[in-house]
Structure formats: structure tokens, C-alpha cells
Simulated scan of single mutants.
Amino acid sequence: MIHIILFGPPGCGKGTQAKIISNKFDFIHLSTGMIFRDHITKKTNLGKLASCYINKGTLVPDIITTNMLNIEIRKHFKAKGIIYDGYPRTKNQIFSLEKVLNKLCFGEINIIFYFFIQKNLIINRLLKRGKISHRNDDTNIITVQRRIKEYYKKTYLIWKNYKFKKNIIKLNASLSIEKISIFIENKISDLL
């Protein structure tokens, strides 16, 4: 089973590319944001808990996120591949992911696509997306800035480890959706 991580700040295009890749290669798309928003819509206990953090623009605590994702991963034991969109976001989440993949004999992390983009472009994208999707965490400039700050404070450096150097592929997230998806598809095709 192939495991692909899309890593980068909020609004860099991870979700868009994850959908394209999952359709192209018939991989499972696991988005922590989508899962949390689904729970919020359904007003589950997990949704109520997650919304407290998401609406403030802060990360949902590791224990909640990893437990939720581990349950999701177990559902897909027959998958050809899994794309992780917005996960892992902390070092503890990396360890947790490696641990569950090892425990289930699902393989290991194959590629980490690192989306890099300028801060001002992210802010514009998020506010634009907020107008269209009416996501609470994208409509308020203060929340948007807090989310970006959280990313640079807690997530930005999590892969700075010799162990993953060979897995990281940098890509310019300010390029067109099409150019990025062609680049990603070529790299994944090399694995198959």
C-alpha cells in the first residue's frame, strides 16, 4: 500500500490535489479537516469538541486527531494507497501514523509532497475560499492569520529530520492546479 502525505500551510491547495490524485490513482483521500467538518455538521461529540479548536484557528489536540485518523485508516485495509491531507501536523502525529501503519502491516510513508507558497497568497486564497464555502475558519481574517501562525509555529518544521529527507518532494504551490497535478502524478507513477 502506498502512503502519500500532502504537507503545507492552510490554503496551499492540498485538498484540491488530493481529490485529483485519489481520482486518478483510485487512492483513498483522508482529510482530517473534512472528517472534522463532517462530524461538526452531524453534531457528534467529536464534532462539538473539534469545532471549539477549529473556529479559534488552533490545532485540534493530537490525542483526538490521531484516534480519529487511526479509526479511519483501519477501514481501508484493501486500499491501493492512501493520501493524507492535513495530517500529520505534529511530530507526535508522525510517530502515531508510523506506529499504526507498522501495526497493521500497511507499509510506510512513501512520499511527502511539501507545498511551499508565500504568506500573502495564502491569506488571499483562504479569504476567497471562505466567501465561497462559508467555512468559519476561512472567513475571519484574525482566524486565518492565527491558523497560518499555528502552522509555522507547530507544523512547519515537523519533517526536519534526516529520516524523511529522501521522502520529501518540494513543489511550488503558486503554480497552476494543472501543473502541480502533472508534477505529482509523475512522481507517484514512478512508485507504481
Score class of each variant (00 low, 15 high):
14 K>A: 04
14 K>I: 02
16 T>R: 02
16 T>W: 02
16 T>P: 02
17 Q>A: 04
19 K>A: 06
20 I>V: 13
25 F>L: 11
26 D>W: 00
27 F>P: 04
27 F>A: 02
27 F>D: 08
28 I>D: 12
29 H>N: 15
30 L>T: 13
30 L>Y: 09
31 S>W: 00
31 S>G: 12
32 T>I: 11
33 G>A: 08
33 G>R: 02
33 G>T: 11
33 G>D: 09
33 G>Q: 02
35 I>P: 13
36 F>E: 08
36 F>C: 12
36 F>K: 02
37 R>T: 03
38 D>T: 14
38 D>K: 13
39 H>V: 04
39 H>W: 03
39 H>D: 12
41 T>R: 14
41 T>L: 15
42 K>P: 00
43 K>R: 15
44 T>N: 07
47 G>E: 03
49 L>C: 09
50 A>N: 05
53 Y>N: 08
55 N>W: 03
57 G>M: 01
58 T>G: 01
59 L>G: 07
60 V>G: 01
62 D>E: 10
62 D>P: 13
63 I>Y: 03
64 I>W: 04
65 T>G: 03
65 T>W: 06
68 M>N: 03
69 L>A: 05
71 I>E: 15
71 I>F: 13
72 E>A: 11
72 E>H: 08
73 I>W: 01
73 I>Y: 02
77 F>P: 00
77 F>V: 10
78 K>H: 13
79 A>H: 14
80 K>S: 10
81 G>V: 07
84 Y>P: 10
85 D>I: 05
87 Y>G: 06
88 P>A: 06
88 P>N: 05
89 R>K: 13
90 T>R: 06
91 K>V: 15
91 K>M: 05
92 N>A: 11
92 N>S: 12
93 Q>C: 05
95 F>L: 11
98 E>W: 01
98 E>I: 04
100 V>M: 00
102 N>W: 03
103 K>V: 04
103 K>Q: 10
104 L>S: 14
104 L>R: 05
104 L>H: 06
104 L>I: 08
105 C>E: 10
106 F>S: 12
107 G>C: 13
108 E>L: 11
108 E>V: 02
108 E>R: 06
108 E>D: 15
110 N>V: 00
111 I>T: 12
113 F>R: 01
115 F>S: 08
115 F>D: 10
115 F>G: 06
116 F>H: 14
116 F>I: 12
118 Q>P: 14
118 Q>K: 15
120 N>A: 13
121 L>W: 01
122 I>D: 09
122 I>R: 14
122 I>N: 10
124 N>I: 15
125 R>G: 07
126 L>M: 15
127 L>S: 13
128 K>E: 14
128 K>N: 14
129 R>F: 12
132 I>C: 05
132 I>E: 09
133 S>W: 00
134 H>S: 11
135 R>C: 09
136 N>F: 11
136 N>W: 01
136 N>P: 03
140 N>L: 04
141 I>P: 07
142 I>Q: 03
143 T>C: 00
144 V>R: 02
145 Q>N: 12
145 Q>D: 04
146 R>M: 02
147 R>G: 04
148 I>V: 01
